[in-house]
């Protein structure tokens, strides 16, 4: 997709000269800049220090900031999850790396019962400036326990914010906003994006949490998605354009708080919506989006809201099986064609 367009859409600015950097480099810049700006920001988690993060996001930070602010932890997920609560309510701003989203299950009590509820149940006084980072998503042969898309687990829990960027520009700006946020933010990075380049300008900018972004304008159908599937949706839109179907692509970027307004505005125009994510379709976040479209935009719909997601099975290892298990450019394009026919 065209990252410059994302910048233009997000900030309403005129595009400037391109600086193409990798998604993981954009994330590193976000953390690095925030650590420089605010001495209470620190990083800890599995392999963040000497290794530099399993996808090199925190590379070089240990040398730059030292072992007090960049801490390799044991493989103790409950400790990793809960220590952020204690550190944040007493005045620090932890940026925590769980490595894989799949591993967060071991820390679920600390995230769901401790971090998410701390502020509310103690009377709304505490700030919990925590960012929990984790890689998620399939497509690179990591099999069942390293490839899930579990974001719906977390959007279901009040007290958490959930972010899942689709490109390097958004990743950097969203992560900086997440670090500055006084709430618990889960920041999910699709692992197939780490080595994708995007246009990221030099210098300071933020992308606010809770603001959806129209990544491609179109008149005939709306695709709503987030993370890597936005890239697939944009490619599908190009295919469909040659068939005479003009597709609008909306990137939610933040799943909670959800900015549904641009989606409804789009549906008013296109009268058709396809919700796409890589998570298992059944019980996935797409169900929430589809329900809201129908609640808020029913009168504008010419066809039922369609959903695409992964099959109801663990992610398989063998490449043909894995690739068949979640939406692809082709299945998205086909989904839009069916939507246009009212299938």
């Amino acid at each position: 997709m065209d990252a410059t367009k994302a910048r233009t859409a997000a900030n309403g600015e005129t595009p400037v000269e391109q600086r193409l950097i990798f998604f993981n480099q954009a994330l590193r810049e976000a953390i690095d800049e925030e650590m420089t700006r605010d001495p209470t920001v620190f990083v800890y988690g599995e392999e963040v220090g000497v290794w530099g993060g399993s996808y090199n996001v925190t590379q070089g930070l240990l040398d730059k900031y030292g072992p007090l602010r960049v801490i390799d932890t044991p493989i103790s997920e409950a400790l990793i999850g809960g220590a952020a609560v204690g550190a944040s309510i007493t005045g620090s701003r932890p940026v925590v790396d769980f490595m894989y989203q799949d591993f967060m299950g071991i820390a679920m009590d600390q995230i769901v019962n401790q971090a998410a509820k701390n502020r509310y149940m103690f009377g709304g006084k505490n700030a919990l400036p925590i960012v929990y980072r984790a890689a998620f998503g399939a497509g690179i042969g990591n099999a069942a326990q390293h490839t899930q898309s579990l974001e719906a687990w977390f959007t279901h829990v009040p007290g958490l914010k959930v972010v899942a960027p689709s490109n390097a520009y958004d990743a950097k700006g969203l992560l900086k906003s997440a670090i500055r946020d006084d709430n618990v933010v889960l920041f999910f990075e699709h692992k197939a994006l780490y080595r994708e380049r995007g246009d990221v300008p030099e210098g300071e900018y933020l992308v606010p949490l809770g603001v959806s972004d129209v990544k491609r304008a179109g008149a005939n159908a709306t695709i709503v998605s987030y993370a890597r599937q936005v890239q697939f949706a944009l490619q599908a839109a190009e295919q469909l354009a040659s068939e005479g179907i003009d597709v609008e692509v909306i990137d939610l970027r933040t799943l909670y708080p959800l900015d549904i307004d641009p989606v409804i505005e789009s549906v008013k125009k296109t009268n058709r919506a396809l919700v796409v994510h890589e998570a298992v379709r059944f019980g996935g976040f797409g169900g929430e989006v589809a329900a809201q479209i129908q609640e808020l935009g029913f009168d504008y719909l010419d066809a039922p809201v369609k959903r695409l997601g992964a099959v109801h099975a663990p992610v398989p290892f063998a490449e043909p099986l894995e690739m068949a298990s979640f939406p692809s450019v082709e299945s998205i394009a086909q989904g839009v064609r069916e939507l246009m026919q009212g299938i």
Binding site: L79, A83, A87
Partner: peptide
């Protein structure tokens, strides 16, 4: 804070102590 989850406070306390060390 008190805690409704048995064992839930141990990581939180450890994080508070980590914060004290950092600060």
């Amino acid at each position: 804070g008190a805690n409704g989850i048995v064992g839930g406070g141990l990581p939180i306390a450890t994080g508070a102590a980590l914060g004290s060390k950092l600060r």
